[in-house]
């Protein structure tokens, strides 16, 4: 039995639904430090995800950073060391999807060479008549970035657990991979 710990960065443009999603995430979890954001631009909350069929779990410390451009700089200082990425866009806003590549660049620059497992989340799937981003397009871009793609509706509580489970699983596999590598190391 292993309990892993990961810091998960929740990013994306303003108003795509990051805070609404993080409310869903912690509705049955622990509210860690809400409204921290007043001064720092970052909310931190914790959610424990069990890995099915393993007895192992991952404690996700989710950082909801403010999407307003003016706050981005101060947010980046708060990111610190990051384990996982949850990149969110609004399915009814082509612009918010286009901006994902900027968010990706920013996060990559911040993490340098560290491999960062992550998910791309298209939110507001309930607004189907206003959809501007097709699933296949988002899926393809996500794959090109090494992200797993999920669609959610924070409003209708649809599919909101899927991205978290995907993140936890990815981190758990990374741990097992690294442990294997270490087991096979030679002496110093």
């Amino acid at each position: 039995m292993v309990k892993l710990r990961a810091k998960c960065l929740l990013v994306g443009d303003a108003a795509v639904g990051k805070s609404a999603l993080s409310h869903m995430f912690h509705s049955d979890g622990t509210l860690f430090q809400k409204n921290y954001s007043m001064t720092t631009g970052v909310d931190l909350l914790m959610k424990c995800v069990h890995i099915p069929d393993s007895g192992d779990s991952v404690e996700l410390y989710i950082m909801d950073s403010a999407g307003k451009q003016t706050l981005v700089e101060s947010c980046e200082k708060m990111w610190g060391e990051v384990s996982l990425l949850c990149l969110v866009f609004d399915l009814t806003s082509e612009q918010s999807f286009a901006n994902c590549s900027h968010w990706m660049e920013r996060v990559r620059a911040h993490c340098r060479s560290l491999h960062l497992p992550g998910v791309l989340v298209g939110n507001k799937s309930d607004l189907s008549t206003r959809r501007e981003v097709q699933a296949s397009v988002a899926q393809e871009w996500a794959e090109s970035q090494g992200l797993e793609y999920h669609e959610t509706s924070a409003k209708e509580k649809e599919n909101c657990d899927a991205p978290l489970l995907a993140l936890a699983r990815a981190y758990h596999s990374l741990y097992q991979e690294r442990r294997e590598t270490i087991q096979n190391l030679g002496p110093g």
Binding site: K3, L4, R5
Partner: peptide, 25 residues
Amino acid sequence: SSDENHPPENITDGHTNKFWMSTGM
């Protein structure tokens, strides 16, 4: 941190083949 298969006692057992592993952050 603790992974029950890689407990901290492995640090003090005098051998390098067994190890303690951190579990994140």
